[in-house]
């Protein structure tokens, strides 16, 4: 028996270890990926007992020619740009403040990180209470004491998206801060010492030393946050449910409504999922190219 075991070559051992992973990967990732790609070209409902019916590019054409799809993409785009930009600003500013060690800086850093450790759905529900014009703390802190004139954050189409952005910035700026801190702490001290000897001003030091050194990590933060923002679902569902009307309906919420919630239009929702995937891959590639340029530069 032992003699037989010795006969296992390195290659066989490798195959033995890799095969279970490959099987799981194929079953859980590759197969659903290709099956959903096939479904995106069919008319099919997962809850129906009828087989998928091939319709070619009809689902894609229907989605791309639907004005509401572009409206939802515009909402998602606006949300992504504003939210990620604010997260960068707040996160990086916090990192610059926290970078210097002071008494209690450890505890403060930990406390700042707490929001990103919470469940987005719970965060959404809590903020919904805080945005409530009757008893929420947001209007109170903003100085609105008269309930008749207080803004109704979640019921006003012009404010609802901003409400979600505020929560997203509150939740994910600490992530940007964390990456920025890593970048800031990796900058060699001799660069600052040399700049000080040359009597460089703070703005010059920030622009010519700090920013270029931190930029690769900032771009990674932008990449991660952009991908997450483009997929935003849980916060929206927790705070506004996509309303008022569809004023905050991101493409992911739209996808959820089509794929589930009484509609179960699996063919069309698969096509929508692939469109979202292509957009995310395209934007990610642009970022990665930029990142590589910064690294090489």
């Amino acid at each position: 028996m032992q003699a037989k075991r010795r006969q296992l070559s390195d290659r066989n051992i490798m195959v033995l270890f890799i095969t279970p992973t490959m099987i799981i990967l194929v079953l859980m990732n590759i197969y659903p990926l290709f099956y959903s790609l096939y479904l995106s070209f069919t008319e099919y409902s997962v809850i129906s007992s009828t087989a998928p019916k091939w319709v070619g590019f009809q689902n894609y054409l229907a989605i791309l020619s639907d004005a509401r799809f572009w409206k939802h993409f515009a909402i998602t785009g606006r949300y992504t740009v504003i939210s990620v930009a604010l997260q960068m600003l707040v996160g990086f500013s916090l990192a610059l403040l926290i970078k210097e060690k002071f008494k209690g800086s450890g505890i403060i850093t930990t406390l700042i990180l707490v929001p990103m450790m919470l469940s987005p759905v719970i965060v959404g529900l809590f903020w919904r209470l805080m945005f409530n014009p009757s008893y929420g703390i947001v209007n109170y802190l903003l100085g609105f004491r008269n309930i008749n004139t207080s803004p109704e954050w979640l019921g006003d189409p012009t404010l609802a998206l901003w409400a979600i952005i505020i929560v997203d910035v509150w939740m994910w700026s600490p992530f940007v801060m964390l990456l920025s801190l890593a970048g800031l702490s990796a900058i060699p001290d001799y660069l600052y010492e040399a700049a000080a000897i040359d009597r460089a001003g703070p703005w010059f030091i920030f622009r010519r030393i700090t920013m270029p050194q931190v930029m690769p990590l900032l771009l990674i933060a932008v990449l991660f946050r952009t991908i997450e923002a483009l997929k935003q679902f849980d916060l929206v569902m927790g705070i506004t449910g996509g309303g008022p009307g569809d004023a905050t309906e991101t493409v992911s919420v739209r996808l959820y409504r089509e794929a589930f919630q009484g509609q179960f239009d699996t063919g069309s929702s698969s096509a929508l999922a692939y469109i979202i995937l292509i957009v995310i891959i395209a934007i990610s590639n642009l970022y990665i190219r930029q990142l590589n340029k910064v690294r090489e530069g």
Binding site: G155, D156, P157, G243, P244, G245, D246, A247
Partner: peptide, 9 residues
């Protein structure tokens, strides 16, 4: 309904 009644659109 939500856009008109709640959102006032």
């Amino acid at each position: 309904l939500h856009a008109y009644i709640v959102g006032g659109e």
